[in-house]
């Protein structure tokens, strides 16, 4: 769709300025999109490796936990986990990737070697395996959450940037170009009209003098 403007030289100058800026913006946004894609693909690779590791770990831990649950009563299981033995947590901060704020989870946990907060009577050996496995997996789970959230935020940003690039490339820049062409043609037309009129006036004046 053309931009509706009065075909004046002032407008043409303004349009040319806008066109130049749109082209510069388009180039910058394209560069940003390409860089975001690069970072996105790097994160995807990291996520795939992490998820593979975490899922393989969970595939061992969950059946062990299920076996423990089958061997223990609800009360015994609740009692076993009443008081935690080690404390752990996640420090949350933010980092910036191409102006996108992504979370950074820093794992705070004690050594995962001594994590069983219960005695041996009424508890199952499967529970030991499940708890040790989960303790080992927890830092990886935090890392996976960080990477997956970053991927989600980057994907949103890539989508936004892609829309902007497309809007500039396929809508705004062609419209500005076509409007500029229209004004140029209109101005040329006016120029030719003026010239013809002047020549006609000159002819009339010459005829009267003769």
């Amino acid at each position: 769709m053309e931009v509706r403007v009065s075909p004046t030289r002032m407008q043409l100058l303004r349009l040319k300025k806008r066109l130049g800026m749109a082209e510069r913006g388009h180039k910058l946004l394209k560069d940003k999109r390409d860089e975001l894609m690069k970072k996105f693909l790097d994160l995807i690779k990291k996520e795939q490796a992490l998820r593979g590791h975490v899922e393989a770990g969970l595939a061992k831990v969950l059946p062990a936990f299920l076996q423990a649950r089958a061997a223990m009563s609800r009360e015994a299981l609740e009692e076993a986990f009443m008081a935690p033995k080690v404390s752990c947590g996640v420090d949350v901060s933010t980092a910036t990737i191409m102006n996108v704020k992504v979370p950074e989870f820093t794992w705070r946990g004690e050594e995962a070697r001594d994590v069983h907060p219960y005695g041996f009577c009424g508890t199952s050996a499967s529970l030991d395996d499940a708890v040790a496995g989960l303790a080992e997996l927890l830092p990886k789970l935090a890392e996976l959450a960080e990477v997956e959230k970053s991927i989600e935020l980057l994907a949103d940003e890539i989508e936004k940037t892609r829309r902007r690039v497309n809007a500039l490339e396929y809508v705004l820049i062609p419209n500005l170009r076509s409007t500029a062409r229209y004004i140029t043609m209109k101005l040329d037309e006016m120029e030719r009209g003026n010239l013809t009129r002047l020549m006609k006036v000159k002819d009339i004046v010459r005829a009267k003098q003769a």
Binding site: E75, E78, E79, M82, A83, G122
Partner: peptide, 26 residues
């Protein structure tokens, strides 16, 4: 008796580690 000893553990942990005992109580 096993349940009595279990309940003793529950209440003692609840007191010493300041955690609610209800879910583990038999």
């Amino acid at each position: 008796a096993r349940w009595d000893f279990h309940n003793l553990k529950v209440m003692l942990k609840a007191k010493l580690h300041r955690v609610p005992p209800e879910k583990a109580w038999a």
